[in-house]
């Protein structure tokens, strides 16, 4: 990279400015499906982080020997391999979380966030920025999942990370932990993000380089 600050910038980009869920709208299927509790968000975020980091490292390391014509297939082989590894390791080490996440671990394979980062970044960059990018994006993804999961858990079950946080008389809004609650929550969060972005741009009329990256 040209300047040392670029790495920092790459990291922050995924974490917030180009947040995969809130800005780029990538990986919404798991983001909506598993987030009926905050702990599920943490678990799926951790599994996705593992897969994205290993896939980006490998794709970036071998980007010179992978012919362009078969790059997508190779990405998928790499991603699918590490998703299966994550699935087996979780089943062996943390059966309770594995049972909770159920079908969503195998579905990390088709999370467009991961494939998108390989195509848009890891295949074109040296290993170091690719790893930094993967770390930023996956932490950003995890933060988003925990935010959605936290809001849905508080309103839908009256708890946060399993700890009761709402007053005793609180009647849980069951719809928040059902699928519609996921859509309500993400719509509200997107509106909030858009509002914050509009305010920031109003303050800084010419904010360079604020275009979000496109989806795959």
């Amino acid at each position: 990279m040209k300047r040392p600050t670029d790495l920092h910038d790459t990291f922050r980009r995924g974490l917030w400015r180009d947040n995969p869920v809130f800005i780029a709208l990538l990986g919404l299927c798991p983001a909506l499906a598993v987030t009926n509790s905050a702990i599920n968000g943490v678990a799926l975020g951790a599994a996705t982080t593992f897969v994205l980091l290993t896939a980006s490292t490998l794709v970036s390391s071998f980007r010179k020997v992978i012919p362009k014509q078969v790059r997508i297939t190779t990405f998928i082989i790499i991603i699918a391999t590490f998703v299966t590894v994550a699935d087996l390791v979780l089943a062996a080490m943390a059966p309770a979380i594995h049972a909770e996440l159920g079908a969503f671990i195998p579905l990390i394979v088709c999370n467009c966030l991961i494939l998108g980062r390989q195509e848009a970044f890891a295949f074109r960059k040296p290993v170091k920025p690719a790893v930094v990018d993967a770390a930023g994006m996956s932490i950003g993804f995890t933060v988003a999942l925990v935010m959605i999961g936290g809001i849905r858990e508080i309103l839908g079950s009256g708890t946060l990370f399993g700890v009761i946080v709402m007053p005793a008389g609180f009647e849980p809004w069951i719809i928040m932990i059902l699928p519609p609650g996921g859509f309500f929550t993400i719509a509200l969060l997107l509106a909030l993000m858009a509002h914050l972005k509009a305010r920031r741009e109003a303050r800084l009329p010419r904010h360079e380089d604020s275009e979000p990256e496109g989806a795959v």
Binding site: V65, V70, T74, I77, A80, T81, V85
Partner: peptide, 14 residues
């Protein structure tokens, strides 16, 4: 060759 090697390594790891 690329896909064959990638697939074999993947299979070995799995």
């Amino acid at each position: 060759l690329t896909l064959g090697i990638a697939g074999s390594l993947s299979g070995l790891l799995l």
